[in-house]
Amino acid sequence: MRIPPAMAAPFDFLPLFVIQRAVGLVFAQVMARHPALLDRLGDHGAKRYGFLPTDLPLSFVVEPSIPMISVLRRSVPVTTDAAIEGPLYLLLALLEGKYDADALFFSRDLSVTGDMEAMLALRNALDDCDIDLPLDLGAMAGPFGPLVTRAVGYVREQALLEEAPAWN
């Protein structure tokens, strides 16, 4: 599942600070709810990781030990220790451990560059910390939490269902 160009286009015009604010809140929530991530990352927590969705005109740079996430226009070159590139839904699925990263590498759906030791540590740390985006987002939505959890969960379910045949 790729984000259609028509849906991705508005991100070219949306002010970066708005996207940064929204993404930063989600990132802070995830880091706060999964402290074990940093322990498993060890020294690699201080590295800079690039997440480059191929279907969005944006790049995300994560520095776990700070913790900080920076959003940049895709046209702006990013300096990272390691980077992973692929469709957004696959990057999110990896974040949650829904897909096996090696299998996505074999199939060439994802590509990785830079410090592979850091990338491997991040992959393994994410895989262990049971991130559940619907629950994590719901937890920051106050009284609307259950609604948000259900809505995000529905979107995730549809995305995974759509891709399921690829594994058979």
Partner: peptide
């Protein structure tokens, strides 16, 4: 390998 691989 990841937990998704192990489960599958």
């Amino acid at each position: 390998r990841g937990k998704a691989y192990v489960a599958e």
